[in-house]
Amino acid sequence: MNEPVIKVSGLTKIYPGGVLAVDHISFEVHEGEIFALLGPNGAGKSTTIGMLTTSLRPTEGEAIIAGYSINREPSKVRSVIGVVPQEFSADEDLTGWENIMLIGYLYGLPKDTVKKRAAELLQTVGLYNVKDKKVETYSGGMRRRLEIAMGLINRPRVLFLDEPTLGLDVQTRAAIWEYILKLKKDYNMTIFLTTHYLEEADAYGDRVAIIDRGKILVIGKPDELKRNVTWDTLFIEVSGSYDSAKQALSILPQVKEVSFVNGQIVIKVADGPSAIPLVVSAINSTGQEVKRLSLNRPSLDEVYMYYTGKSLREESMSKEEAFALRRTLRRARS
């Protein structure tokens, strides 16, 4: 296996005043992965990304990014990463073009290279035709796309996305993800993202780490995580006797539990999609037919609830985060 492109060990941040924001976290991210750090506001996601992108100094611990230490070689780390911060960072008084060119120069790229890449990136994110307009005239979605383009000007090996779709409406969120996936494919990057949208971590994350109160509770592929803490549920209606069907199903090794609720057989299985053909043939073997079958897969919220005892959707946010969110939303809407 390749060396991990991000290797974090014992990373800790204690803010002045003694607030323990990140508490000895360790994990690895591999080349080409989309790694999602999922957790409620105030869990330590932004602090983690702040330390990995070298804008915050860790209190303790180490992280190696593309071979460089965040403690000893921060400027080398900066040159191989791209960052799309949670808050809009583009200069509103400048045009989109001026903003992306400026960032290119800050990476020490020659003018011709910056021009070529800026044009290409703005085209990819669909902003080329408004490149000479001031950023203050951009919509929330346009700004986010500009931020992503700005984060890619140095062709980073790792792209850090801090809440890339925060404050955007559902359509824009989907569009942003389309761009992210396209760019990942085009430039073959590793993506590290933080989010508190379960659906996004689930749908786009190759692996997900759940963080709460500064600690990583569990890391794994979304499907694995779900499988480990809870079962897929199959709801089946059959043509004949439920008892014989139930008997046939009980002996299948994949089936953990069979019950009978509201005229349906409800069975818990480890992996729903792969269990369906077995379940269907077991029922057929009793001479009955499956009239209707539906599969319910758990969401990451159930995983989150399993590890933290609370639902991610109900988490409240800290004052500062609420302030930052409001500001972001205000600008996204303007």
Binding site: K76, S79, V80, D93, L94, L106, G108, R157
Partner: peptide, 22 residues
Amino acid sequence: MSEGRLSPFHGLWALTNRELKK
């Protein structure tokens, strides 16, 4: 990807220019 060695003054003029433009 980093493009060779960075001069210690890279970006200085770009940032100055930004201030002046504003």
